[in-house]
């Protein structure tokens, strides 16, 4: 049997095939999908998802930065239920419970068409999430750039994501120039990042704030250059290991935390720290420096640093940049 060629295609046949042909040439947005590879595999996600659900703070921050209003988010760690800096953008967004144990049923009945999770939070429930909707898992919740890239890719907003990252790079360059000029011989400065908790204190060797400070050209004390997130200190005898030219610390506003802070800072060893003797110990905002963990939080942290060192901050704000 001869194969039908285009020439013997009758008009009726052609008309019948026309819709299929058109569909191939101009795929409607709803049908198109992209394969996104992520920490736990590869997921087919709709090209421009409309019902995005965020299961960790960094993804919520990134989504807002990209101009997306999620259809569901998890509760914040403090300033519950939503961090103040995100509240105006996230009014009336349904809450899904805690980041560590989001409410699976609620996730299902809000009918998302894309779920954003993080490996070290949601690897156990990933198979279930995948049954509910296409799920993309970020590898590291502390790497705000990687999170932004993942969220931008999954939501089909790579251009805007790239623009935000370029803007960030410009700000970093600007900050480095200004602070080098301002501090002169005292730059690069060695800084430590501490946190006080209800029953212990922490030094951060890595994590969100540390990576940003490193990128900005600050240095870590010799003892803090380790390939791990940091250390929990329970004995005040370890206070000397906290030392640096300047100390930034954050803590929550709770009586128990305040007590730890008072105890540790009243200790003679603390009084003897270089930073303490020179009055270079500063409290910073725990949400911007440790909990937001997204591009917006990173920009707030950078704003703090501009203010702290009295540098003029002339580049456009992140929300106006892209």
């Amino acid at each position: 049997m001869a194969h039908p060629s285009l020439t013997d295609l009758s008009p009726a046949r052609f008309l019948a095939a026309l819709p299929l042909l058109l569909l191939c040439l101009f795929p409607p947005a709803a049908l198109a999908s992209t394969a996104v590879s992520h920490a736990l595999g590869t997921t087919e996600v709709p090209a421009s998802p409309e019902r995005v659900m965020s299961l960790f703070q960094g993804a919520t921050d990134s989504a807002v930065a990209l101009g997306i209003k999620p259809v569901g988010i998890v509760e914040s760690w403090i300033e519950k239920p939503v961090y103040r800096y995100l509240r105006s953008s996230l009014q009336e967004v349904p809450l899904l419970g805690l980041e560590t144990q989001p409410d699976l049923e609620r996730i299902a009945w809000l009918h998302p068409d894309l779920i954003l999770g993080a490996q070290n939070r949601h690897q156990d429930i990933y198979p279930l999430l995948q049954r509910i909707a296409p799920t993309v898992i970020a590898e590291d919740v502390y790497d705000f750039k990687a999170v932004l890239r993942t969220v931008a890719l999954a939501t089909g907003k790579t251009e805007k994501g790239q623009c935000l990252l370029n803007h960030w790079r410009n700000r970093v360059t600007d900050f480095r120039e200004r602070i080098a000029r301002k501090l002169g011989g005292r730059w690069p400065q060695t800084v430590a990042i501490l946190s006080f908790r209800a029953n212990h204190a922490r030094i951060y060797y890595g994590g969100f704030a540390r990576t940003i400070l490193d990128e900005l050209g600050f240095q870590s004390p010799e003892a803090h250059r380790q390939d791990t997130w940091g250390i929990k200190l329970t004995s005040q005898e370890s206070i000397p290991t906290m030392d640096a030219q300047a100390i930034f610390y954050f803590m929550q506003d709770e009586p128990a935390v305040k007590r730890t802070f008072d105890d540790w800072t009243a200790h003679p060893l603390w009084q003897n720290l270089e930073a303490a003797r020179n009055g270079q110990v500063y409290r910073v905002d725990v949400v911007a420096w440790n909990m937001g963990a997204g591009i917006l939080a990173a920009n707030h942290m950078l704003d703090d640093l501009y203010r702290h060192y009295g540098l003029s901050n002339t580049l456009p704000e992140v929300q106006d940049a892209c």
């Binding site: 560590t100 144990q101 279930l128 919740v141 997130w229």
Partner: peptide, 20 residues
């Protein structure tokens, strides 16, 4: 680290969350 400790805390209390 925090993430592991958080998993461990929930697990130590005993939970049936997300049973498969």
């Amino acid at each position: 680290p925090d993430a592991t400790a958080m998993t461990a805390y929930v697990w130590l209390t005993g939970s049936l969350y997300a049973t498969r």
